[in-house]
C-alpha cells in the first residue's frame, strides 16, 4: 500500500502530451496546481475549483475530466493531455483550434482550453454529433463571455472537417 503522510512530498511521474514529466507533490496538491505550479504548464486554467465551470478540463488516459477534482498523486503513471499538446507546432493549429479561430469561438479565452480538451475527446468518440449532443457536452463548461453561438458553429464545423479527413485518408484523424 502506498502511503504519503500529510506534509510529505513524493515524486509524481506521468506522461504529459507525449513526454515523461515529473515533479514533487504533497497529498493535497490538485492536478491543476501541479500542472501549473510544478510543471509550468499554464494553459490549463483554474476557475471554480469544484468541478462546475470546466475550464480546468484535461484528458486523463484519453478521457476528458476535471483536473481540479483529481489529486496530483493520482496522476502517477497516467497519460495526461493538456491544451499545450493540441497543435503540432506554433503555426499548425488542429482542426478544432482552427474552427475556434474562424468562428470567434473565444473572447477572453479563459474557458477555451477546457472546451478544446472536452471536444477533442468527445469528437473522437462521436464523430457525427447533432447540435443537441454538442450542446449537452458544452453544458459542462461555463463561458462568462457567453460566446456559445460561436462555439456551436466552430465545433459543428470541426466535426465535419474531421469526418472528411477520416474518409479521405481512410483512417481516423486526430
Amino acid at each position: 500500500m502506498l502511503r504519503v503522510n500529510t506534509n510529505e512530498k513524493v515524486t509524481v511521474t506521468f506522461e504529459l502530451n507525449g513526454r515523461t514529466v515529473r515533479g514533487e507533490a504533497t497529498p493535497r496538491m490538485l492536478l491543476t496546481d501541479f500542472l501549473r505550479g510544478e510543471l509550468g504548464q499554464t494553459g490549463t486554467h483554474v476557475g471554480c475549483e469544484h468541478g462546475v465551470c470546466g475550464c480546468c478540463t484535461v484528458r486523463i488516459d484519453g478521457v476528458a475530466a476535471r483536473s481540479c477534482l483529481m489529486l496530483a498523486v493520482q496522476a502517477e503513471g497516467r497519460r495526461i493531455d493538456t491544451v499545450e499538446g493540441l497543435a503540432a507546432s506554433k503555426d499548425a493549429l488542429n482542426a478544432l483550434q482552427r474552427a475556434f479561430r474562424k468562428h470567434h469561438a473565444l473572447q477572453c479565452g479563459f474557458c477555451t482550453a477546457g472546451i478544446l480538451m472536452s471536444f477533442s475527446d468527445y469528437l473522437s468518440r462521436n464523430p457525427n454529433p447533432d447540435e443537441d449532443e454538442v450542446r449537452d457536452v458544452l453544458g459542462g463548461h461555463i463561458c462568462r463571455c457567453t460566446g456559445y453561438a460561436g462555439l456551436m458553429k466552430a465545433i459543428m464545423e470541426a466535426a465535419a472537417e474531421l469526418r472528411g479527413a477520416r474518409t479521405s485518408k481512410g483512417a481516423p484523424a486526430q
Partner: peptide
C-alpha cells in the same frame, strides 16, 4: 479553495482498503 492536509493511502487490494478503514 484547496483541501485541508490529509494522509493519502493507495491500497493494492480490497483487503488492504478494508484494513485501512
Amino acid at each position: 479553495m484547496k483541501p485541508a492536509p490529509f494522509t493519502y493511502l493507495r491500497p493494492d487490494s480490497v483487503g488492504e482498503a478494508v484494513a485501512a478503514l
